[in-house]
Design a protein around this nucleic acid. Sequence first.
DNA 1: TCATTTTTTGCAACCGATTGCATGAAATAA
DNA 2: TTATTTCATGCAATCGGTTGCAAAAAATGA
Lengths: 342, 342
Amino acid sequence: MSKEITIYDIANSLKISPATVSRALNNHDAISTNTKALIHAKAEEMGYRSNKFASNLRKQKTNTIGVIVPRLNSTLMSTILAGMEKVANEAGYNLLITQSLESFKKEISNVKTMFNSRVDGLMVSVSYDTEGYEHFRSFIDKNIPLIFFDRTLDKSECLNIVIDNIKGGYDATKHLLEQGCKNIIHVTGNLKRNVYADRMRGYQQALAEFGVPFKQHNIFETDLTTEAGRKVVQAIKLSEEKIDGVFVTNDFCAVTCMGMLKKMGYSIPKDIAVVGFNNDPLTEIITPSLSTVYYPGKEMGEIAAKSMINHLNGLMDIGHTNYIVLKSELIVRDSSSRLPKN
Amino acid sequence: MSKEITIYDIANSLKISPATVSRALNNHDAISTNTKALIHAKAEEMGYRSNKFASNLRKQKTNTIGVIVPRLNSTLMSTILAGMEKVANEAGYNLLITQSLESFKKEISNVKTMFNSRVDGLMVSVSYDTEGYEHFRSFIDKNIPLIFFDRTLDKSECLNIVIDNIKGGYDATKHLLEQGCKNIIHVTGNLKRNVYADRMRGYQQALAEFGVPFKQHNIFETDLTTEAGRKVVQAIKLSEEKIDGVFVTNDFCAVTCMGMLKKMGYSIPKDIAVVGFNNDPLTEIITPSLSTVYYPGKEMGEIAAKSMINHLNGLMDIGHTNYIVLKSELIVRDSSSRLPKN
DNA sequence: TCATTTTTTGCAACCGATTGCATGAAATAA
DNA sequence: TTATTTCATGCAATCGGTTGCAAAAAATGA
């Protein structure tokens, strides 16, 4: 285990002061070009690497951005993370990633960890059952930039990066109505969360616009798992009123439902038309291909990270922006196309 | 922006020395229970949080483990990461995650970043075109623990956590042969990577065992994307010899192929039987459900992280272990079941 | 009561880089 | 040649915990 080289070693070896070495390595103006070259060469030669702790300690900055997501292993989240990582990495920032596993309690603990790790900023998509944002108080008090993405919190004064979920829900539902659906059920997640609440609002708006009465029992508030899909399909089968349209706020769950419906003899889209949400790659490869609402995950991650970094570098103040709404639109595929394409 | 509380503030406020405060907060034996309680209470009251830089600087330890994966947004990788995160978090470690985006060059730069961030250990699944492990030299020289998982490097002296890919390939192929397949093609990734090379070896072993000649043109070395699937299906269609079995080393690509084959009129599994790899959740929800080889992603992540942490805590020396092979087995579903179930 | 052992606490150096201020050297002006 | 300005470098304090060693305090024994 070779000894770690410090600026003092370089300084000694060159018979100059550590201050000069430090400045040279940081490309400070006050150091002459010659000296800089000399020091850089020596540093290289000796295998020097900067000690970030010392530097962080002094500068009170970590060059690390924290990210809290509900789960790492979801297509959407890992795509968003991929986008964030790309941007952060290019800008010389690191990402400290944790998952709340949809638990409010774990989220609180994650926030604490992030706080103690002194991340320069924090980006969060909240858990299923998060209540309020008292647990972010420490960040807000210390003025550490905080960005919410995808799942946000009402009345948060922070920057929120979202898609227009109302429009998404509206488009999907309107499309189903246009295809002739008369009785559309809506399978969604915890309505406490903006993404689901808004999509339902869109659903309701579309119904209203088409003069279709809204029925509470057509809303299935689930955890969007395979199991949830199974139950929904059971309900469809046992329903007295004929159900001819399904709008699921998650592609995976939608595909699950389609599979079961098919097995039970329903023809899709003829008997029942289905629309999902997110544009998961799997929507294209199944049969029938699933109509869905495109969700710009990678872009969302990139924009979140970019906003954070710009803010940290003083190029932009996220304090002045409340929402950034990304474009997302309905993609019509076979699972809902009843009318001939013209 | 409130001022940061330090142990000196606590010390002053209690009229004791910072050393005592430090020891008390770290639960050092030498401090009396009374004093400890007093200090803890005061720390809580004043809203103290430890400064990790100062601590890291002194202790030369970051409590952070680096992870480099080819891509964040793949089902398998994000599942492995989820497992790692869980274990690391419970043990008080943080994860610094980067992606190489399958580029050797980016991987080299990632390793540098990790090195400069002074992670306590590094866990890597190498990129598509990684050559050798010279770029890990810095870690090896400094004796910083290094673990490879999933995609490993030949002849690496480090701990490798893998599944038995040969067996996986063998099981899948043998199963297809048992179902009566006479001419099985194998769609795989870069054969430079152990996972793909080994699976092909298993494929060859099974063929040999059944006296089926191995044909080089039955191997499709691809990037396993949708596009690759498309090309493979084209080839199947144009092939002179009838192809009646497909073994794809990736579920997503397998599903893509199935979809296209179905569209082209092939009946699965009657005309062509298909087996995938990884046991992606999507394998269960499509029709026909896809036979596949179970890949214990979460477990792999958990075991990798656990090994790393045990090593760091001195409970175990990964220097003595070369391989940990996790159990993985064939899951037979509809896409390959030609014989009646008994 | 005094000596000895054990338990608590404090002193002060240290980890390595950064930076305000001061100084010395070189360049320019007078 | 001397005074003034500009440029380059160094000094020394600082960031906030940690820890070996010593000293003080408390507990025990004689």
